[in-house]
Design a binder for these strands. Structure first.
Lengths: 377, 377
DNA sequence: CTGAAAGCGCTTACAG
DNA sequence: CTGAAAGCGCTTACAG
C-alpha cells in the first residue's frame, strides 16, 4: 500500500515525500533517520515518531481529538528524549509562559529569605516558575523590572512589599490594560490591586495584651515608627488595644527609633537598647520591630547586667529560627509565611472571579517564649 | 512631494500606502494615528515613528549602519513609551535571552539567602536576569529544571551546590552539546564543569592553627563529617594541619554528628552539645559546621553553666549576622560570598577563552571573636 | 482523527 | 543608509 503524503523534512520545512505506511516515513535524500541530533522542536519529534508536528502540538495542549494511542506514544517519546517544547515559540503564539514575575523591594533579611523559599515551593506546586527580581525600593528600577516582566509575557505578578508610591498608579494602569493577574504581598502603600498582608496590628495587639496581663503598664517600641514600612500598620493595633483597655497613648508608649537606620538588624536593636537603658523612668516592656532588633537589644541588656525578663520583658516579631535559640528563648509573633504565600497564589488564580476576595489579611500567631514575665514590683 | 512607499499597517501586516513626507504617513481607512493602544512590537513602534520595523531592529541590535539621528529618535521613543522588545521573538530568532538559569540544591539557610541576594546583584550588573529554581537535591527534579532552562534558551547556568551524582555526566553532556556556559558554585561532587568554591579546608585550618596557638590540643568537630556535603572538603584542611603540626588525627579530633540531621541548624548544635558535655574527657575546643550549629551549641553550654570560652572554645563558619550579636561574639570564618559570586559570573563570561581558569578557589577570611580563648589549664 | 495555512515578534542576510 | 524576505518554534482555526 503506497500512499502519497506530506511530512516535515529537514530544517522544519515541509517537503513532499512518499510514504510506505502510516507509521514509517522515508525522506528524499536522507537514507536513515539521524537519531544523533537532539530533538529540539515539535517538527523533529514528529519526524522521529512519523507524525505531523500539529499532532504533537495538540498533545502538548491537551486537545481532545487525538487518538489515545497517539497521545501515549508522543508522551512516552517526550519523556524518553527529555523533549521540552520551546517556551518562546509557545509564548509568541499566545500560550501561557508558566513564569510568574516576582519582585521584592528588598532582600537579605531572613524573613525575606523564608518568603522566597515558600513562594518558590508554592508556585512550583501550581506548575509555575518564579523569575525573581529585586528593586531595592528604587522606582526607576521597579518600573524597568515590571516592564520587563510584561514584555516577557509572565502569567502573573507577585509584588512583595508592593509598589513604590511613585509608580503605583502608572503600573496599576499598565497591568490592568494587559489584564495581568497581580497580587501585592505585604504592600507598603495603599493600592487597589489585590493584596495579601499580615495583620501586624493584631500581632502587636496580642503581645500588648499578654504584657498587660503580666502587669506591665509602660511599653517601649523599638523601631516601630509610623514613618517606617510595617510600623504604620502596627500602630493601628496599638491604638486599638489602647482604646479597648482605656490606655492613654502618650503615657503608655515610648517610641525609640532612628531616622534612617542602615538596617533593621541586631545592631539597630543594640543601639536602641543603649538609648533605652539611659532613660530615667524606663518602661518595663519592650516591643521590637522584629526578632533581630529584639535579639540585639537583649544581648546589650544582658551585657549591662539587666535581666530579661526579670527587669525588662521583651517581644520580637517574625519568629525567626534564632528566636528559639537565644537564651532565654524569645517571645515573638509568627508571620505564617506559608499561609501568606498560599493566599497570594490563590488570589492570582481567583482573579477572574468577580466575587473573589481582593484583599486578604493573614492573622499572625503569638509564640510565647521566656523573655516575657511579670512586671517588676 | 508625493512619493509611493510601504509602511506597516494595522496588525503588523505590510500594506501599500501613500506617503506625503518622510516622517508622516497616512494609512488607508485609518484617518488618524491611534496613539491609545500601547506599543508592543517593533512594527507598532516603527509605525509610530514613520520608520520600517527593520530599522527598529537594527537600532535594538546595535547595527552600525543606522543614521545617528534615526538611532537617537528610536531610543528616545523607546524610553518615552517604555517599549521593551518581546524577548520571545528575539530568543526564537537566536538572540540572547538575558536570562541566567540559577539552580540551588537547597534553600532556606541564611547563607543561601546571602548567595541569592549577591548573585542577583552581580547578575544585574552584568545585564542579566536570574531565573531561580530549587531542586532539594532531588535528581529527577534537577534534570527537569535543567531541561527547562535549556528549552528556555538561558544564556548560561549557575548551579549552586553543583549537580547530583546521578545526573552529573548526563547533564554535563547535554550542556556541552548545546554549548551553554555553566558554572558550579561550591559543588558537592567532582565535575569537569568550571567551578568556583570556597576553600573550606583552608578555613578550618586557620581556625585549628588559631586554637593550637591558644594551647588547645584536642578538638571536637560538630557536624563536620566526611559523609556530609562541605564536611569532606574540610577534612582535607584538617589533615593538612595535622601533618604540618605533627598531630595524630585519631587522638586529636573527635567527630560528633548525626546520620541524617533534619537540618544543620541551631537545634542540631544543641543536640551535639548535649552529647559533648557527657564526654568523659572533653576536648577543650569545638569546631562547628556553621554558625547556627555553633550558636545552638553555645546556648546549650551556657545553660549548663559551662563558660565559653573559659572552659570550651568555639568556632563557627559562615560569619552570619548572628555571629556578631551573640554573647560572647562568635569566632567564625567568613565565606566572602561577594567574591565567590563575582568569580562565578566571571567564569561564565570567560568560558570561551581556552586559557581562562576553569576552577577557582576562594579563600575564606578568619574572623576572630570572643568565643576562643586560652585552653584551660 | 489528522493535515496544512497563517502568523505571533523578532533578526539575519540579501537587495537596492 | 533603508526596504523586504525568510524563518525561528509554536498554536489556533480551518479543512478534509
Amino acid at each position: 500500500m503506497i500512499q502519497a503524503g506530506f511530512a516535515p523534512g529537514e530544517g522544519g520545512r515541509e517537503t513532499k515525500t512518499l510514504a510506505f505506511s502510516n507509521t514509517c516515513w522515508y525522506f528524499r535524500g536522507v537514507p536513515e533517520k539521524k537519531s544523533s541530533a537532539p530533538i529540539v522542536s515539535t517538527s523533529a519529534l514528529a519526524r522521529h515518531l512519523g507524525l505531523s508536528r500539529w499532532t504533537i502540538s495538540r498533545v502538548l495542549n491537551g486537545h481532545p481529538e487525538v487518538k489515545p494511542e497517539t497521545t501515549r506514544r508522543v508522551l512516552a517519546a517526550m519523556k524518553e528524549l527529555g523533549f521540552v517544547p520551546n517556551p518562546h515559540g509557545r509564548a509568541l503564539r499566545g500560550a501561557r509562559t508558566g513564569i510568574v514575575g516576582v519582585c521584592f523591594q528588598a532582600i537579605g533579611s531572613p524573613i525575606v529569605a523564608r518568603k522566597i523559599a515558600v513562594l518558590q515551593r508554592v508556585l512550583r506546586k501550581a506548575g509555575q516558575r518564579a523569575l525573581f527580581e529585586v528593586t531595592d525600593g528604587n522606582p526607576r528600577l521597579e518600573l524597568e523590572v515590571v516592564r520587563n516582566f510584561v514584555a516577557m509575557k509572565v502569567d502573573s505578578l507577585v509584588l512583595v512589599g508592593g509598589l513604590t508610591q511613585e509608580n503605583g498608579p502608572a503600573i496599576e494602569a499598565m497591568l490592568a490594560q494587559r489584564s495581568i493577574p497581580t497580587v501585592l504581598v505585604d504592600p507598603m502603600n495603599e493600592s487597589s490591586l489585590p493584596s495579601v498582608a499580615l495583620n501586624r496590628g493584631n500581632g502587636i495587639a496580642m503581645a500588648i495584651r499578654h504584657l498587660l496581663d503580666l502587669g506591665h503598664r509602660r511599653f517601649a517600641l523599638f523601631g516601630i515608627d509610623e514613618r517606617v514600612a510595617y510600623g504604620r500598620n502596627r500602630w493601628v493595633g496599638i491604638r486599638e488595644v489602647a482604646e479597648e483597655r482605656g490606655l492613654a497613648i502618650d503615657e503608655t508608649f515610648v517610641t525609640l527609633s532612628e531616622e534612617n537606620p542602615p538596617a533593621l538588624d541586631f545592631g539597630y536593636g543594640r543601639r536602641l537598647a543603649e538609648r533605652f537603658v539611659a532613660f530615667p523612668e524606663r518602661p518595663t516592656a519592650v516591643l521590637a520591630l522584629n526578632d533581630q532588633v529584639a535579639v540585639g537589644a537583649m544581648a546589650f541588656l544582658q551585657e549591662r547586667g539587666i535581666p530579661v525578663p526579670g527587669e525588662v520583658s521583651l517581644v520580637g516579631f517574625d519568629n525567626l529560627d534564632v528566636a528559639a535559640h537565644v537564651n532565654p528563648r524569645l517571645t515573638t509573633i509568627d508571620q505564617d509565611v506559608d499561609l501568606l504565600m498560599q493566599h497570594a497564589v490563590d488570589l492570582l488564580e481567583g482573579q477572574s472571579d468577580a466575587d473573589a476576595p481582593r484583599h486578604v489579611l493573614v492573622e499572625p500567631i503569638f509564640v510565647p517564649g521566656r523573655t516575657t514575665g511579670p512586671a517588676p514590683a
